[in-house]
């Protein structure tokens, strides 16, 4: 198993290099360093000298990927791509265009992101599984039928609607919690309730329906008939036999997203004014801050790879048939 994990980590290196290359190319296909400088400096103060100075200070005055004026390996190393990438692989993300340290920024924004994402994830899992189990238990009855109808309806509505509708109804009309904002202390709770509830509701349709399908598929298997033939009551059949087997696809599907929780949610954080990593990324994209975008994409792919490895490990924990070789 250790061998397997080491091999997977080694596989991750070319993936991360590739992700970095693609991010870099895409960003500079639509932007040039000059554009970035103009954007940052503003319309008024733009002179060719100022642009050159801005680029020089931040290391954007070199060719993008291939330096023809250099000899030997310098052709590749004295470029924006190489210099920026090497630092990042050592987790030195550098400074954002506004001069702040990105690593420090990430550290301080991680917690607010987690404060929303983690409750949404955990409570959501519990709620979805419970509803799915209820629907599976009452399969082929009206409970099941209307449950599925409700799921499809929930799935069909955009999450933006839940956010705006929730803010309007609960905050504006009923004045139960603030519309948006965040505070670092214990009173953060009142800011978090609404985004968490809306997060759970907007994911409910798809997940509940998917889990219900998993439960029903397990219930049609032969071993369930065997369990019933033993004389076990339906509740034990469901909880001891079906649930244990159905948890294999459910858990492993969930584990993959656990590391990504750190990155927060792009849309919800922006709408609720949470100073997390999601809103950080959105802001960086709109201000064309390459250093931040690249750092966040890099972090995202890294965490996704960690998630995949964790998934494989979790398989061995819940399914005795699987041994990693």
């Amino acid at each position: 198993m250790l061998n397997y994990i080491i091999r997977r980590i080694l596989y991750a290196i070319p993936i991360l290099v590739g992700v970095n290359l693609i991010t870099f190319t895409l960003f500079f296909v639509v932007n040039t360093p000059d554009d970035m400088a103009r954007m940052q400096l503003g319309i008024k103060r733009v002179t060719p000298e100022a642009i050159e100075k801005w680029k020089h200070e931040r290391g954007y005055d070199k060719p993008l990927m291939l330096n023809d004026s250099e000899e030997g390996s310098g052709k590749f190393t004295h470029t924006i791509f190489f210099e920026k990438s090497v630092a990042m692989f050592a987790f030195d993300f550098g400074r954002a265009d506004d001069g702040r340290d990105i690593a420090h920024e990430i550290k301080s924004r991680m917690l607010p992101s987690l404060a929303i994402a983690l409750p949404v994830f955990l409570l959501g899992l519990i709620v979805y599984i419970t509803f799915a189990l209820v629907m599976a238990f009452f399969r082929a009855t009206y409970v099941d039928f209307w449950g599925v109808v409700l799921c499809v309806a929930l799935m069909s509505i955009s999450s933006l609607f839940y956010i705006i509708g929730g803010q309007f109804l609960i905050s504006k009309l009923w004045h139960l919690v603030p519309i948006s904002g965040y505070s670092s202390g214990l009173d953060a709770g009142k800011f978090l309730v609404l985004p968490v509830i809306i997060g759970i509701i907007s994911g409910a349709g798809a997940s509940t329906r998917w889990y219900r399908t998993i439960f029903l598929e397990e219930m049609s298997k032969d071993y369930v008939r065997t369990a019933r033939a033993k004389g076990l009551p339906e509740s034990i059949v469901l909880f001891r036999h079906v649930l244990r087997n159905a948890m294999i696809p459910i858990l492993t599907g969930a584990v993959v997203v656990i590391p990504l929780l750190f990155l927060g949610s792009l849309i919800a954080e922006s709408f609720f004014g949470i100073p997390g990593l999601g809103s950080y990324t959105i802001d960086a994209i709109s201000s064309q801050d390459f250093a931040v975008v690249r750092a966040m994409v890099f972090l995202g792919s890294l965490l996704y790879i960690v998630g995949l490895i964790l998934t494989d490990i979790s398989y061995t924990l819940v399914d005795p048939r699987i041994r990693l070789e």
Partner: peptide
């Protein structure tokens, strides 16, 4: 009555046993 007065065995032993429970658990349950 099921499993006590009348028991049943099925065609596909591969599919008819719960894959994630030990043999002892599955027999002990009865």
């Amino acid at each position: 009555v099921r499993g006590k007065r009348i028991s049943m065995i099925f065609q596909e032993p591969m599919l008819s046993l719960n894959p994630v429970m030990t043999v002892a658990e599955q027999i002990g349950e009865v």
